[in-house]
């Protein structure tokens, strides 16, 4: 499936990068900010794709790792005045460790049980964000996270500097994730999605592969969360809630699971839609639902798979 149209992915990536590299200096800062959002959430959507698209594990709680990493940056930088690298590494480490612990539980279950357990985990963390006020600030969240450029001591400042720094992180993450899905390990994930029973009888400890998939996805979600905290300057429980995870789920399914490129496009589309629509209506969830239904009817395999997998 991958590699059948070898040129298509490369062309799309080249176009996207050209847009993200060349356009920002010509755009008003509001739009630069939107592009930065898209890039950060693209990392997150691609990380969920490893789990949902490649391994076939539908996580409804994936935004939790993103959110926890973002909180970690907020707490470390605002409450403890920690330096940039402590915040970055701390955020990635805490998010990844959390996925390593929760992965022990969820890797045993499949299908709708997986959906329910990850949903429950997301709810518990959201609850923590709300109620563990001394650490999380409750509903008010935590504000005052320094801008990335300032905290990192970059020579350039402002939205453009942040945008390009984010782009570099994105390119590194996307490259690494691409390597993972094309590795021997990456093929085993697709094997589990296709026929886990056969994988076991061939000699794979599929639990271990699902677990590693969960942790790898959690690690990249954490990177995304760290970037988000710096981009936004503020964290609140909304980044842990079901809406966040549903939007994320939609980015992957709308864009085209098991492609990495599709979820990237999905992230761009959802961010754009959400920001454009919020100018006209407060009923974002309703719109999200409608998009979801239309997407399922018109492109059940996602936009990026539209002409790739003829119905068979």
């Amino acid at each position: 499936m991958a590699g059948r149209r070898p040129g298509r992915n490369s062309v799309a990536i080249a176009l996207a990068v050209a847009l993200l590299v060349v356009a920002p200096p010509l755009l008003p800062s509001y739009w630069v900010g939107l592009l930065t959002q898209m890039v950060i959430l693209a990392i997150l959507a691609m990380s969920l794709d490893i789990l949902l698209g490649y391994t076939g594990l539908p996580s409804l709680g994936h935004a939790a790792f993103f959110g926890v990493a973002a909180y970690a940056v907020a707490v470390l930088s605002v409450r403890y005045g920690a330096n940039f690298w402590v915040c970055v590494l701390g955020g990635i480490l805490i998010g990844t460790l959390l996925s390593a612990v929760l992965g022990l539980i969820v890797s045993h279950v499949r299908d709708v049980y997986f959906l329910m357990i990850t949903l429950a985990i997301g709810m518990v963390l959201w609850g923590l964000g709300h109620r563990w006020i001394p650490v999380t600030g409750g509903d008010n969240g935590i504000s005052g996270i320094p801008p990335l450029e300032v905290h990192a001591g970059l020579p350039f400042q402002g939205p453009l500097a942040l945008h390009y720094a984010t782009l570099v992180v994105f390119l590194i993450c996307a490259g690494l994730m691409r390597l993972v899905v094309r590795s021997p390990f990456g093929l085993t994930l697709r094997g589990i999605r296709e026929n886990e029973g056969r994988m076991k009888s061939l000699g794979f400890n599929t639990w271990l592969h699902c677990y590693l998939s969960f942790v790898v996805a959690g690690a990249f979600a954490s990177v995304s969360g760290v970037m988000w905290a710096y981009y936004n300057g503020f964290v609140s429980p909304t980044y842990l809630d079901l809406t966040a995870s549903s939007e994320l789920f939609l980015m992957v399914t709308l864009g085209g699971p098991s492609t990495l490129v599709g979820p990237m496009i999905g992230a761009g589309a959802i961010v754009l839609l959400k920001n454009v629509m919020s100018a006209y209506t407060a009923r974002w969830l309703l719109i999200l639902g409608i998009v979801y239904i239309v997407a399922i009817l018109a492109a059940p395999q996602g936009l990026w798979n539209l002409r790739k997998r003829p119905s068979a």
């Binding site: 590795s183 021997p184 990456g186 093929l187 085993t188 994988m199 061939l202 590693l212």
Partner: peptide
């Protein structure tokens, strides 16, 4: 791959 330790390799392309 099934009985090969390299099934867990993530940092190199299968090719």
């Amino acid at each position: 791959e099934a009985l090969d330790a390299r099934k867990l390799v993530m940092h190199r392309a299968l090719g």
